[in-house]
Structure formats: C-alpha cells, structure tokens
Simulated assay, not measured.
Amino acid sequence: MFKGVLLGFMAFAAYAFSDAFVKSLRGSLPAYEAVFFGATLGLAALPFIKGGGDRWREVMFAQRQGLWLVRAVASAVGSIAAVIAFTALPMAEAFALIFLLPIFVTLLSVLVLKEHVGWRRWSAVVAGFVGVLVVLRPGFRVLGVGHLAAIICGLAGAISMIALRLAGPHEKRITLYGAGMVGSALITGALMLADFRWPQPGQWLLLLGYGLLAAVAAVLLMLATQKAPANHVAPTQYSQMVWAVLLGYVVFHDRLDWPMAIGIAIILGAGLFTFVREEQVTQWWKRVRML
C-alpha cells in the first residue's frame, strides 16, 4: 500500500515537471505542435503498459470504439488547452482552474450517467465555483485566453473521465492509454500540417522533457495502481499543486497574492471533497481500471 501511494506521488511529480517543460517553451511553438510531439513521445510507455495477452491493434481498436473516440478527442482538446494555459498563466493558477475537473465530473455524472448527487456534493460544486470567482476576480483583473483554456482543459478531462467510467470495465490498459496518446497525436498532427515549424535544438530538449516525463509518469501511475487501490492513489494528484507553487516560484518567478491563494485553497478543498464523496457513493475505482 505504501509503495503504491509513494509511486502515485512520484507519478504526479513527473507530470508536474512535464508541464514545467512545456511552459518553458513560452509559446514559441503552436500548442498543437507541442502536443503532437509530446503525445508521440508518450507512446514510449506502451511497451511497459502492454500486457502479455494484449495485441498492438488494441491500442486503437476498442470494445467500445465510440467511447475510444470520445476520449481521443477530449484528450487532444484538453492537452492543447493545457499547453495554452501553462504558457499564459502562473503554474499554480493554471492548475487551480484545471482542478475543477472533479466538479465537472459531478455535473456530467448527473447529466450523462443520471447519478443521484446529494446536497454535500452540490455544496462542493458551489464552493468550487466560488473559488473560481475568487481566483479570477472578474472586473478586478484582466482575464485572458489562458484562463479560458484552463477551464476547457478541466472540462475536457471530465468528459474523458466519464467516458473512462463507461469504457473502463470493458477495455484493457493499452486501449485506455492509446486513446489519449494516439488520439492526441493523430488530431494534432492533422492540425499542424497547415503551419508546421521544425523545432530548434533548445525546443527539442524541452519537448523531450515534456513527452518523456509524461510517459514515465504514466508507467509510474500504472505501477502505483498495481500495488495499491486506485482510490488510494488518485488523491496524490493534488500534490501537483505543491509542485506547481514550488516550480512557479523557483523557475518562473511566479507570485501569488492572498486572494488567489485563498481561491486556490477553496477549489482544491472542493475538488478533494468531491472526490471523496464520489468514492463513497459511486465506488468508481471498482469499475474503472485507472490510468
């Protein structure tokens, strides 16, 4: 159990450093091009994820192909939005808005899965959006495309999670992972055909860090869920905020004021509470192979 949770912390630390690498590009490449190379490099994790009885065709061909396509599109949209958000915003602020994902999952659970949501989870939803207002302070600060992109990333992640809930019990890990990586690579590869720019040597190093660290994180997360239940591993995702604050302060010289820090705390608290309640009510970890 301890090893699984520790591997979870290591996985999300690797994800945070991966995001720091793509932020270091500072918009010097189109977001979809960065995602293409990141997703292509992320395919390096496939040999480690592939099980003994898995076939390579299962990376792209699923038992429920429609849900595979939903996850592929959501992953591509979310990844592009994440790159834009990290480029335009301080890391902690971008993560705070992206961490609206559990709130969006609750809303989609009602709309799509027809799940019953009690007053506690609705209270967390309201608190999460209050936290967003505190962070954004509309009317008191300039809002930009980065804020919109971060929220879109959280929404896309929630759509992917709902599709994962529906497909997870029927699909293999290699299929679930392939939807995110192959889907993102194909969609962003098509987008960059109109205006492709060869990365410079320094940009290649940043892209390598972005893609390979994400691949390492995926393998660590898989190992984590083999050693501990997914419901114990998933909350370690919130450690990314610690890394976001540290990396933002040390590497990018980001500064957080008190209202933003309070808003971030509200969003994280609401998201974590929502996760705990969803765990108790839906027992999703018993129905989904987490990856």
Rank of each mutant, 00 (worst) to 15 (best):
Phe2Arg: 00
Gly4His: 03
Leu7Gln: 04
Leu7Ser: 01
Phe9Ser: 05
Phe9Tyr: 11
Phe12His: 03
Ala13Gly: 10
Ala16Arg: 02
Phe17Lys: 00
Ala20Thr: 05
Leu29Arg: 04
Leu29Val: 03
Pro30Met: 11
Tyr32Pro: 00
Glu33Val: 02
Val35Arg: 05
Thr40Ala: 15
Ala44Tyr: 02
Ala44Met: 13
Ala45Ile: 01
Leu46Glu: 07
Pro47Glu: 14
Ile49Glu: 09
Lys50Ala: 10
Gly53Ala: 11
Asp54Gly: 02
Glu58Gln: 13
Val59His: 04
Phe61Arg: 02
Gln63Val: 13
Trp68Asp: 00
Trp68His: 02
Leu69Pro: 00
Arg71Lys: 07
Ala72Glu: 04
Val73Met: 05
Ala74Thr: 03
Ala74Ile: 06
Ala76Ser: 15
Gly78Lys: 01
Gly78Glu: 07
Ser79Asn: 14
Ile80Phe: 05
Leu89Phe: 05
Pro90Arg: 00
Pro90Val: 06
Met91Trp: 04
Met91Leu: 11
Glu93Asn: 06
Glu93Asp: 13
Glu93His: 03
Ala94Trp: 12
Ala96Trp: 07
Leu101Lys: 08
Leu107Asn: 01
Leu107Gln: 06
Ser109Ile: 06
Val110Ser: 05
Val110Thr: 01
Val112Glu: 06
Leu113Gly: 04
Glu115Tyr: 08
His116Val: 10
Val117Trp: 02
Trp119Glu: 01
Val126Phe: 15
Val126Thr: 14
Ala127Arg: 03
Val130Ile: 15
Val132Cys: 08
Val135Phe: 05
Leu136Cys: 12
Arg137Gly: 12
Gly144Asn: 11
Gly144Leu: 02
Gly146Phe: 08
Gly146Gln: 03
Gly146Asn: 04
Cys153Ser: 15
Gly154Glu: 12
Gly157Ile: 12
Leu164Trp: 07
Glu171Lys: 09
Glu171Met: 14
Thr175Val: 09
Leu176Gln: 08
Leu176Val: 14
Gly178Cys: 13
Gly180Tyr: 13
Met181Lys: 00
Val182Gln: 08
Gly183Asp: 10
Ser184Val: 07
Met192Leu: 15
Pro199Asn: 13
Pro201Asp: 04
Leu205Ile: 10
Leu207His: 09
Leu208Lys: 02
Gly209Asn: 10
Tyr210Met: 01
Leu212Pro: 02
Ala218Trp: 11
Val219Gln: 02
Leu220Asn: 04
Lys227Met: 11
Lys227Leu: 14
Ala228Pro: 01
Ala234Ile: 07
Ala234Tyr: 12
Ala234Gly: 03
Tyr238Trp: 02
Gln240Arg: 13
Val242Leu: 15
Leu246Asn: 03
Arg255Cys: 08
Leu256Met: 13
Asp257Val: 11
Pro259Val: 11
Met260Asp: 08
Met260Lys: 13
Met260Gly: 12
Ala261Asn: 06
Gly269Phe: 11
Phe275Ser: 03
Phe275His: 04
Arg277Thr: 12
Glu279Asn: 14
Glu279Val: 14
Val281Phe: 04
Gln283Leu: 11
Met290Pro: 01
Leu291Trp: 05
